[in-house]
Nucleic acid binder design. Structure first.
Length: 272
DNA sequence: CTGAAGACCTGCCTGC
DNA sequence: TGCAGGCAGGTCTTCA
């Protein structure tokens, strides 16, 4: 489900709904997510106040007094903020009840999501975060950075973007979209991208991600926001999921092809 | 280093 | 209506 824009949309919603709330109880209905839910989750969180909610790549970071709770949504993970009286939701695995009668529920049909308790200091050296690339919306991410990184990789640019080693948060949808807007073929070798085209790609990545956040994310099949509404960026997708349709720029048919094992969408007329 | 394939799971869609 | 097969936004491991 979620790439950077969807996770950011969830982060912003949670921030407006549960920031500053205190944990009253925690219950785990199903601990077998991708990795087991930490056994000491309840002990670690009860009584703690949620001081900040941040994001690194596709990870949500819940900052409590003494501990950092990191959460990855996998493919189908969702957070809902309900009342404590509200019944158990479908595929609800973890429930964190807060003061003022609020209840944070984690639901995940495929259970590819995972959570971890990390040190407030030093969490960045955890294996989940150690090798992550730069945040695409930071100022430091630009054509120069992208070019310098791409130079050292012979893999396809699409798989390099997905790897998260150079830039984080770009998943299968937005990699296809950004490459289309930059006019770069997804199977082009990363080290064969010129400095000028790296500029275009960095700009496209920022633009696509920002616009997707503004639209509330992309609901390709089942992404919904914290309040249950869908995201509307699907309407703006130029190539993802549009194989056989015509390219808005040149009229050629959009292709779907597996690149490094992932469905990739591109316009053979516009992307080289 | 690179990529392919398989693993983790469930749901949904297609075609027979 | 039913059922098998393919597909899905992410990551990690193993193998060539």
């Amino acid at each position: 489900m979620p790439e950077l824009p969807e996770v950011e949309v969830v982060r912003q919603s949670l921030e407006s709904l549960v920031l500053g709330r205190k944990v009253e109880s925690v219950s785990v209905r199903c601990a077998s997510l991708r990795y087991p839910v930490p056994e000491n989750l309840r002990v670690a969180l009860v009584g703690q106040t949620l001081g900040k909610i941040e994001r690194r790549g596709k990870y949500l970071l819940f900052g409590f007094n003494d501990v950092l709770l990191s959460w990855h949504l996998g493919m189908t993970g969702r957070f809902h903020v309900l009342s404590v009286r509200e019944a158990v939701a479908r595929h609800e695995h973890v429930r964190i009840d807060l003061d003022e009668g609020l209840s944070l529920r984690y639901c995940d049909a495929r259970r590819f999501g995972y959570a971890g308790l990390l040190d407030v200091e030093g969490w960045q050296s955890h294996p989940w975060f150690r090798n992550l690339g730069m945040e695409p919306l930071w100022d430091g991410f630009d054509g120069n950075h992208l070019y310098e990184q791409c130079r050292h990789h012979r893999s396809t640019i699409k798989s390099l973007l997905l790897s998260g080693r150079v830039v984080v948060g770009v998943g299968n949808i937005y990699a296809s979209e950004a490459l289309y807007h930059a006019g770069i073929h997804p199977a082009r070798r990363a080290n064969r991208i010129s400095r000028r085209r790296a500029d275009d790609l960095a700009i496209s990545i920022k633009k696509v991600l920002r616009e997707a956040i503004m639209a509330g994310g992309s609901s390709v099949s089942d992404f919904v926001r914290v309040d249950g509404r869908p995201g509307y960026f699907v309407r703006k997708l130029a190539v993802y999921g549009r194989q056989g349709r015509t390219c808005a720029r040149c009229g050629k048919r959009i292709q779907r092809k597996l690149i490094a094992g992932r469905a990739s969408f591109y316009c053979p007329g516009c992307q080289h």
